[in-house]
């Protein structure tokens, strides 16, 4: 008797509970429908993203490729302080050029901007990294009047 009354008086409370359950069910259905297949297979991401990334055209050839044809510059560079600075760090991405050198002849880097990008004096850089206040150091002259880009020693 008491139990029956309790049920009758709380019957209306079942409704918000149903709404909640329905919303949760809907959420789960939507979730399973839109979460990409195999999500989480390799980590907290969509494995298909890897394929998408692979489809991007390759921009950098990598310096092993450059060296195959530009032995001269490679030898010069290997002798100096820029030995560990990759060709394309200065020349920019040149995969197209490496594929077909005749069709894509690269523009040479603009020295006025290039060297500054790495060597401008900045207190946030490691202390032992070679850096100069370019305006004072070269007083407007192009860096490569004194330094050679491939082997920056004078």
């Amino acid at each position: 008797m008491v139990v029956r009354r309790l049920f009758r008086d709380s019957a209306h409370l079942v409704r918000p509970a149903l709404v909640l359950v329905a919303c949760m069910a809907l959420f789960l259905v939507v979730r399973s429908a839109i979460i990409p297949k195999a999500f989480g297979q390799y980590g907290h991401y969509r494995p298909g993203a890897l394929d998408l990334v692979r489809q991007h055209p390759i921009a950098f050839a990598g310096q092993d490729t450059c060296v195959m044809c530009h032995d001269d510059q490679a030898t010069v560079r290997a002798a100096g302080k820029h030995a560990h600075v990759a060709c394309e760090a200065c020349h920019g991405p040149l995969a197209q050029h490496a594929d077909d050198p005749a069709a894509h002849v690269p523009k040479l880097p603009d020295v006025a901007d290039l060297c500054r990008r790495c060597h401008e004096k900045d207190a946030a850089k490691p202390r032992n990294f070679p850096q100069v206040a370019t305006a004072e150091h070269s007083s407007g002259m192009a860096c490569n009047t004194c330094h050679q880009p491939h082997n920056p020693h004078l």
Binding site: R5, D9, A11
Partner: peptide, 18 residues
């Protein structure tokens, strides 16, 4: 209303508790 029109005092007491 979510389809429920039961606002009897007993039902309201229940609401109060919940």
């Amino acid at each position: 209303t979510l389809g429920s029109y039961d606002v009897s005092p007993a039902a309201r007491r229940m609401d109060e508790k919940v």
